[in-house]
Amino acid sequence: MAVVPRIWCSFSKGVFHNNQFFTKSSNLKSFHTSLSVFSEKLFTAKHEWVQVDGKIGTVGISDYAQEALGDVVYAQLPDVGTVVKQKDECGALESVKAASEIYSPLSGKVVEKNVAVEETPSLINSSCYDKGWLFKLELTNETELSELMKEDKYKEFLKTEESH
């Protein structure tokens, strides 16, 4: 099994900047909880992210992707039980009259889709890394994880993309 690096929480913006954080014992408790729950988000070159917890990978699209799409008005997500291979088409997001295909960043079986996003597609715009996740996969080939980028590498990648 591939080793999934577990860092504290790559996207918890305020956590490390909040100095009071370390002085409050109640916060410290929640901090320990997040340590065991969250792993680092990994990114694809096509702007999907995946966060792995055990054998389950949660999939979404990056901030760069949601901004490029504009207001998402409809989310067609893969049904639970769908078996997907890495890079398979598995749904679509509609925004400003364009249907953009969703591709699975990893191989696996869909175990959950985000019903809240189906009801309120704008969650993808307002909270792409949290409430706007798309679906969860039970991973079948964890070696694929090594092809994905960590956040810092993805940020570097974005810079080269934008310069083209």
């Binding site: 096509k46 890079k87 088409e89 400003v96 009259k97 364009a98 249907a99 953009s100 295909e101 591709y103």
Partner: peptide, 21 residues
Amino acid sequence: SREDLCISDFKISGTASKLGR
């Protein structure tokens, strides 16, 4: 602004698209 082609305020063309990988 909706990326449709118009003459004055009348649409002469409707647009849509599909984006793959």
